[in-house]
Write a protein that binds this DNA or RNA. Structure first.
Lengths: 214, 214
DNA sequence: GCACGGGCGTACCGTACGTTACGGTTCGGC
DNA sequence: GCCGAACCGTAACGTACGGTACGCCCGTGC
């Protein structure tokens, strides 16, 4: 499977300047995709290529460092399991859905997923694993406690939290991510995201709500 | 949006030899990913590079021709709308789901989607549009008549066929495609595919079955 | 004041690969 | 049997880019 430890906090081992360089690389990655050159990164970051190679080894090292840097930026806000009723559970789920949709439709997420998918073919680096670890799996880690709490409060009814999560994932994302990755212009305004989040949550509750099972 | 006409039948305008060359290119694409070289294709297809350039213009031309060639291979078998009852509708949906899962987990689909995603960033060609047109949109074109027939037979209840389809799409695919594209080893045996197809169909019927609405 | 190390800018090297050019071979038409 | 066209194999060219080396500046410690 995927190797663990791909989501270490990088902000400690990286100096301020290095973070700035990685930010520049990230911006360039969003603009240019995988065909960004080391010279371009150096120019954008106002540093020398030699420094890039000294700090990150080679091109792949720079890329993985950039992806990990972006990954380390999103911090998890834990959810409180106190006083869970249907309203707060619904709100939580909608919140997760809307956050997730916002993430996968963001420019940086699309760019990062694009390069990771491209690199996943030739297994030179673990970009795919890193992105997966900080995307889909991070979401699962955050959402599963909520689902478990919902089950404990007898609001939800499911056997396996993993499959329940995957269903929620499918109901929220549907075809959005693959369409975006393939370059389709999906209209995702704030309003449609909110609507989709509500719809997905309602469908999920219809499938896994405790009162809906005979 | 996506430009139409991306799914023309290529088998008429291509000679036998050219099809063989494209098949070789396709195999190579599956093995090597996007970093296949013109020399490699020529060697594998036992043809000269000059011929490649004469026939397909340049590297991008060869790539798009290859993708279109693979796309033209899958032919649509229309579904009969006669005598639709719940059993046959369920069977149809399960069939669609299982076919779809088989497709997106196949080596060639993964490879094709990978290169298309990679190229979608820099808009040099329309690989993304082609893949989307013959993947997700082709599935919608094939499935929507079934959904409409189900509604006409009062087995299904939905307002918009598009949103109903997208829900089905999400229930079937869930996180499978993105995980595969990112290099995660998802275990997809014949059995799990069948199980997933059944589960997705049941969930879809639970959400959109006519008898489930009060 | 001065050595010095880290880092910037740039010139440079090697190579991989897209693209083109060319000689040799097969094959259909006369 | 001959001609030309299509095609194969390969050599050659140009370029883009990853990676390295070198000269210079500038801040810090003595």
């Amino acid at each position: 499977m995927l190797q663990a430890g791909a989501d270490i906090d990088k902000s400690e081992t990286l100096t301020e300047r290095q973070q700035a360089v990685l930010d520049a690389a990230l911006r360039l990655l969003v603009e240019e995709g995988d065909n960004l050159t080391m010279t371009a990164v150096a120019r954008r970051a106002s540093c020398s290529k030699e420094t890039l190679y000294k700090w990150f080894g080679d091109r792949d090292g720079l890329l993985t460092a950039t992806v990990q840097w972006q990954a380390s930026k999103v911090r998890v806000t834990p959810v409180d399991r106190k006083g869970l009723d249907l309203a707060s559970l619904t709100a939580s789920l909608e919140r997760f859905a809307s956050d997730w949709l916002k993430v996968i439709s963001s420019d940086t997420s699309i760019a990062l997923n694009r390069v990771a998918v491209g690199h996943a073919g030739s297994g030179k680096d673990d970009l795919g694993a890193i992105v997966l670890q900080n995307g889909r799996f991070a979401l699962a880690r955050r959402l599963k406690p909520v689902l478990e709490a919902g089950r404990q409060a007898e609001l939800l009814d499911f056997e396996d939290a993993e499959t329940a999560f995957r269903t929620f994932f499918g109901l929220v994302g549907r075809d959005v991510q693959i369409r975006l990755l393939l370059g389709d212009r999906v209209e995702l305004t704030e309003a449609t995201i909110g609507g989709d989040a509500r719809r997905a949550t309602q469908q999920f509750l219809a499938l896994f709500g405790a009162n809906n099972r005979p």
